[in-house]
Write a protein that binds this DNA or RNA. Structure first.
Lengths: 219, 219
DNA sequence: TTACTCCCGACTGTAAACAGTCGACTTATG
DNA sequence: CATAAGTCGACTGTTTACAGTCGGGAGTAA
């Protein structure tokens, strides 16, 4: 006699705040809200059909994720990235992911790890002819999985906090540039390096991957 | 005829939200709000003499900093750290700060960098006989400076997002354990390594510092 | 006693209203 | 015409009020 209503099974109904958060993130990383644009709370709350209070909570979070920058007197605007900032973001990303790679090498059952990673790559391979957005999505999913599999919640959380900035970097540079980094082979190399259990090699592989990724974006 | 009022000079008046944020952060990292404790919005808003709306914005930020964890139906509680989580936090911290060290080595004028760092160490040395809290404070200031001097805003921001967790780690382990890591000499070693410009050495020095720091905490 | 129902209290989610401040435009004045 | 004072409008900061929901305890029937 259960819920014909909605929040069936694992599908939790999200709060308006979370919905707004997703909507805004998408709007920003898709370029719909162009960089430098001033955000007006009353405007947005009206667009999203939510109250300002609820909206403001979401904005605070986006601000902390680095998607928004605060001007004088709390005026928010969509963050603008220049090439240096993109390189900076990728430097931090590289630091985090190289930690992930090293950690995975020292893990007990790398069987499970490499299996999950191969799956993620298979998804990428399957969508290799899909839209740019889809390819980017599956790429990010691979790297997120890399962090998640370490079991280090703090690492995963830090990476996810950076995710918005990463997306903005790709958007900024242009999707056609970003997609250069989606090579399936390069990702297989990473997994192979982890598979050997050689932490130094895995770290080196990731760092190189990130280096070329950043170079591709700002080139 | 200027302001006898208050917001004189560079001293900006903080919003209630920011005040609440600081107050809560301090309360949590000092242990006044013990780990695992459930937070009730109406209680806190009354304690801090602010409205719930304003409070909630601060809570969202603390949540994202990892000081609070969300239970079912939005119930917030002070995060509880076990030894593994402390190690995880320090692993991420090490990754970030080793990036900082490497970056500083590649910087143009390391003169300025080492000068600033030496200043920060001098502050530590001056307060070496002060209270535990003060010593911890000056230690964190040194490491924050390390990140700030890189000029990589994203790096600094990531580190600061982690700062709350770092403070909790020290608090959790006990201040007397945390203070073991405040050795002035060890910090001088770090600066010396950066001063040589040898990125690999600097990275190694920081990683070892963080390793022993984490070990001291969970030992 | 046990189990079941119903009601009440406690919290969070959300919305709407109020207050203060800064900037831009207008107007008056030399 | 240029400059200064004044007024209006737009936003953010903050508070207050309302709605929905979950959990627990009182009460009741088997």
């Amino acid at each position: 006699m259960a819920g014909l209503t909605a929040p069936l099974l694992g599908l939790e109904k999200k709060s308006l705040r979370e919905q707004a958060l997703s909507a805004l993130r998408t709007a920003i990383t898709s370029g719909e809200l162009e960089p430098g644009r001033h955000l007006v709370e009353t405007e947005l709350s009206e667009m999203l059909q939510i109250s300002r209070g609820t909206l403001r909570e979401a904005l605070r979070q986006l601000e902390q994720e680095g998607l928004l920058s605060a001007g004088p007197r709390g005026r928010l605007s969509v963050r603008h990235l220049d090439e240096k900032e993109i390189r900076d973001i990728y430097a931090v990303r590289a630091a985090l992911e190289s930690l992930a790679a090293r950690t995975l090498c020292e893990l007990a059952d790398r069987q499970h790890v490499t299996k999950s990673l191969h799956q993620a790559i298979d998804v990428m391979a399957a969508g290799a002819s899909g839209s740019l957005e889809e390819r980017i999505e599956s790429d990010l999913e691979f790297h997120r999985t890399l962090c998640r599999l370490t079991g280090n919640e703090t690492l995963l959380h830090s990476w996810e906090s950076l995710e918005g900035s990463i997306r903005m970097s790709i958007m900024f540079a242009g999707l056609e540039k970003g997609v250069r980094n989606m090579s399936v082979d390069r990702h297989r190399d990473i997994v192979a390096a982890i598979d050997t259990g050689d932490a130094a090699l895995a770290r080196k592989t990731i760092l190189e991957h990130m280096d070329t990724a950043a170079a591709n974006l700002v080139a």
